[in-house]
Design a protein around this nucleic acid. Sequence first.
DNA 1: CTAGGGTTAG
Length: 571
Amino acid sequence: MPPPTVPFFLTSTTLAAAAAKPQGRPPSPAQMQQQPRDEQDASREACASYAARMRLNPQLALRLFDHLVRSGADPDHVAYALALGRCERERDRRAAAQLHAHAAKRGAASHRRVRNGLIHAYAVSGMLFDARKVFDRGHEGDTVAWNSLLRGYAAAGDVKALREFFAGMQARDTVSWNTIIAWCVENGEYEEAIAVFRDMLANRECLPDRVTLVSVISAITYLGALAQGLWAHAYVCRKGIQVEERLSSALINMYSKCGYIEGAVYVFENLGAKMSVDTWNAMLAGFTANGEKALELFARMEITGLVPNKITFNTVLNACSHGGFVEEGIDCFERMTKVYGIEPDIAHYGCMVDLFCRAGLFDKAEKMIQMMPMKPDAAVWKALVGACRTHRNFELGKKAGHRLIEAAPNDHAGSIEIDGVIHEFISGDKSHSSKEDIYEMLSEMCRQLKVAGYVPDTSQVLLDIDDEVVKESSLALHSEKLAIAFGLISTASGTPIRIVKNLRVCGDCHNAVKLLSKIYRRCIIVRDANRFHHFREGSCSCGDFWNPLLSLAPDGPLPTAHPLLLFDSKL
DNA sequence: CTAGGGTTAG
């Protein structure tokens, strides 16, 4: 550890000097000439060697910059840029201002890279005014400067200002468009992200690149819009866009979350040498969510010699708890710490608690909670509450429930907005275009279900509906049934039906869809808020293990605000 | 070394 000297840019003397002499006077070319040759060479050498160290150790960039200054060398633009990059990532406005003052004194602040580094560092750390000031001192045609400032408006979250700035930009390139699209995705405006992408394609002032596609595919993933995802993938192939690690992860994730695991596997298996821990992680997550054999895939990963990371184990442990593999889960947890030296974080402990809970091993779960070195978070209590319901352990469930409310009072907030790409179904919706046909199909479906011995389970309708008949008919109109009816009449027989919901499937629908998959011999894939359900020949890939309410008697304790289907979408 | 990005999940 280097001695704890105070970096020059944090000392009050530097501050005072900077305040007194904000602009400084840059050394004239003549003065620069006067400097002895070998001294300049030494300075250049020092800069190069420090730059290398700063690149290697970006988190020490500021300290290294300080050392460089103390060694008597004159920092070059690379050193400034590296140090400012650190300020930008850390949102360190104080150090950015110090570096600014320092650069101004030495006449380096007018260097293009230093200036852009300053704009960026200021812009993302909420100092748009200062960023603007640097920007206004000569930026002619510098797209990096424009984009840095644009990024600042995005970070500030003022949509109107962002839009205006974007519209008024002198030079807009791929990065500018990417910045806007990324902002949309980050802020949950997925439809908007795709709309901007459409504008970009129509506008033709620049071409989408791999970064554009990562953002766009990510938006598509959130929307569960497989058709658009397939298009995006085709676009990548068509335009010869390089499928590097992040893009392949995005594609694998997209296919997985759209329930088209075959597509994800296709991308994964065709990566060749470009496989990385991250692509494996994406594939493992896809297997987990789609009820595939994630543990076997993990075994394959270990054989390749790639070193799994925190995320890998989080995913694998999830696969264990979800599949009920208690022994394997314990084994993975051990291997993670002992073989790979990974310190378990709260999420890992959460997975273990979930693993034990689902298996009904409550004392082990409790022991795990006591063992963990950090405070249990909402996820832990949620796992416990859920399992207590399934296993009818009311006493512990009550305790855990209280802790959950303590940890996350607003847990039930949010209803993700998913807009249908093709069709939208809202529970009880009668406004659909071909509604006559759909409702006819629906009643036919109900008849078939009755023949197959289906009895509506009204225990999960939590609104205060007294009348059994009303309850039953409200269940019959749940949006996935509407969507399936539509799917059955509008697609060729044998075509898999894909449904995206933004809420959990209710137990009644889950039962009904299982039967429907058998009656109509269709593979029905439903994505709910949490995971995928692949219904085939009367059973589901989730193994009926997703909904703690399923095994609850009608007179059991009411869970806190179970969401009723309100808003779903498409096929 | 200055602008834009993916993988956990109850």
